[in-house]
Design a protein around this nucleic acid. Sequence first.
RNA 1: AGGCGGGUAGCUCAGUGGUAGAGCGCUGGCCUUACAAGCCGGAUGUCGCAGGUUCAAGCCCUGUCCCGCCUACCA
Length: 922
Amino acid sequence: MSDAKAPDLSKPYDPREVESRWYDRWEKAGVFEASDDAADARPAYVIPMPPPNVTGSLHMGHAQRCTLEDALTRWHRMRGFNTLWQPGIDHAGIATQTVVERQLQREGKTRHDLGREKFVERVWQWKNESGGRIALQQRVLGASPDWRRSKFTMDADLGVAVTEAFVRLFEEGLMYRATRLINWCPECRTALSDLEVENEEGANGEMFEFAYDVEGSNEQIVVATTRPETMLGDTAVAVHPEDARYKHLHGKKLKHPFVDRLVPIVTDAILVDPKFGTGAVKVTPAHDFNDFATGKRHGLEEINIFNLDGTVNENGGRFAGLDRKEARRAVKKALDEKGLARGAKPHVLTLPRCQRSGGVVEPMISTQWFLKMKGMADRALEAVHSKRVEIIPAEWIKTYDHFLENIQDWCVSRQLWWGHQIPAWHGPGGEIKVARTRPPECGEGWSQDPDVLDTWFSSALWPFSTLGWPDATPALAKFYPTNPKQTSDLETGYDILFFWVARMIMFGLHFTNEVPFRRVLLSGLIVDETGEKMSKVKGNVIDPLDLVHGADFKKIVPDAEAMTKFKKAYPSAAQMGAGFPAFGADAVRFSLATYPPSNMRIALAPKRIEGNRHFLNKIWNATRLSIELLGATKLPAKAPDAKETWNAWILSRLSNAARIVHAGMEGFRIDEAANELYRFFWYDFCDWYLEIVKPRLRDARDEEAAATLAWTLGASLRLLHPFVPFVTEELWQKLHDYPEKFASVALEHFPEPGDARRDEALEARVETVKNVIIAARTVRSEHGIKWADEIPLVIRGADDFVRAHAAEIKRLTNCKDAAAFAAAGGERPSGHTMSVVTSASGTIEVLVGLKGLVDPKHERERIEREIKKCEKDLGAIDKKLSSPNFTDKAPQEVVDEARGQKQAMQDALARLKEAFALVDEL
RNA sequence: AGGCGGGUAGCUCAGUGGUAGAGCGCUGGCCUUACAAGCCGGAUGUCGCAGGUUCAAGCCCUGUCCCGCCUACCA
């Protein structure tokens, strides 16, 4: 850093100060850039980022994408992959159009006042001014995509890809126009695909019954409905053909009470369940999917009774102009007045709602563009079953299969202005031409199809349209799976498995004859601390940036009532007082990384973020200490070949940590990788290794320890970097004393398990030494011996390895005479308490001199507790060993192990009982 | 209705047939010159319930209850 002298490391870690320092440097130095140079021999790794909506601002889901994808990206980059995390923004058809229309509304205008061209201009203006600010927020989180390659789905080149795809599908006969019953959102005034309809369960409604008069008879037929207003569009009443109650009415007609129409009674065994209700069903072919199918079977008239905005049209006679709710009331009232109403019962129903507007979706007959899905779905199924695409966790394969096996044709046209306009031209005589550009013969009297494509159509092309398809670009050759040296992951929330993932696989196979990515990593949804989905209505939404920068609860929650809701949703935040402190991006990221991504629901606990901020503080302070201890020691180029126990031990533990991190990252168990780093760094490196080497480096000059410490710390920072990029970069630079030439840790070698030697036998022996130390500490703690008081310690039965580490035992327990080892079997020193440590080489007695310092009663209780525990364990193992079934049938090594354990426990039990005698001398 | 998850410590969750784990919380003691955002200790379990397989089940099988999600349907 040439311009600014970095400050000294302050005592507590301040993420605000550190995190602002590095992002620009990374970006300027080109750290995130991928190369599409054909001469670049590195293997390629690609993650297509799920493009956030242009209207979106960062929410916890984005933060989770960011964390997981950035960790994978940085991990691969450090391992030498030519890594492309492809960023971008989605134009989000309905959502964006709605935002701008609302803006116009405030000016007292509608989009129709502007006209299509001006309106689209206005949307672009909005996009340029306030759209896509999410990309800036992703930077705050430290995301490392190749921003130079960022794409917007409405970019000209992506528009070319969309047109190309549409035209090809049309030419192949897969894209077609049809008139059928579709999902219509009266609020957005557009058709929707089946997926965009959300079913709200448990809505309170009622089942309303009314009668039709049979023509030329005094009889009536009673039907039931949850939507009385649709009777305006009834064109039949269906009964079951075998239903004796109605046999004499077959072929008769009913008088519609409000419109001049006779409604036939038809028989239909598919629609009608004679056991349900009255056994007679009103049929409204134009506004119900089952009735539509029934109508087709019987050639019934389809009478549309609604305008596009959901109000009743002229077919509704005197009810015309009313919206659906008003019409329902009015029709019920009118039926009642005619004496036809037969009462209503409460009824729980499922309401179809528009995913975007929340409006109740109305089935309407409409002419739309549809895409045949069957063939593409079959290929997509095969690709997953043959593992050309791997879905992780594999539990999702069944869900994927079920969707694709039952897939319906996709209604792709939307009656919006914002989006990719359909490349079709309509002639004056109803002719249709589909072409990449307006065909010259389509002159006077021809007009382009006014509709646009479903936003998800362009999203489905994303993995290859962003790389230049349909052109054969160098980027496509390098970063698409057609390159055998490419690996790729698609990471996203399981909620868009159908919307996006399945469609990308289908389109990828269709247009490129190759899967669009090799693995699909599906993550769970972030929910509040009590497991509830985050939503504005519930008042439990947390903005990740409030966690990063800190936030006063009063600022993020509007009123006292909302505050109660908020604190209920986050009990651990409720304990934090007035607000969130600035946890920093690293702490938020690390927390998100430690949740198993495969959990369906990931309950965000602010307390956990606090805990991880403490971890970062630990890293910070451990590095401060290390820098002090290292002095002029340079970071070694490779791991030292350490001979001394603790040096070899920490390198072995480091190797083990690297192994677990690799396995976790490889298998998309990022939580296991992150948790291992937490454990290794805190419990092995800080709690033990640093405590051991402190005096060796502070009071003396131990070169091997210095090299080992430097190596281990450097490797730890590198291992941690994919998770916590900011603090690791800061400390890495500090370890190098902020060199002139910026060499980011993001481009350093990622530690491999083989970088240092793993020695499991050594780890086991060290574990025994640690257990001896812990035993002595426990006794001290139990009896409240002050740390400053040195007390005598005698260790009996220890092996040579334990003896060789007397100095550490003494120092870490603050006991004198730690070298006082005694042979097993001899006389025990008096005035000592005894604890027992079992090890591979036998039982070790840890005797602490406490004469006059303790209450013997307390000590007897302590020993009794230990005896009880030992006896319980021994009883269990005894029972096992006394069963001939076990000794005969279990594998030999299991039986041997059990015998060894029994031996050790018996031994320990005997010593503990002897320990009682010693208590008398205290 | 069907499908898929889940039910393990107070909370959030790991757990891959072989003596039940972590973090947070709780608790006792320490301002031991990296870190009190810390250190050293400690307590905490009917692994939803009932059967079964196995020498051995939190884990495998069957049934069942509860919670969540998804899909379909709902006159």
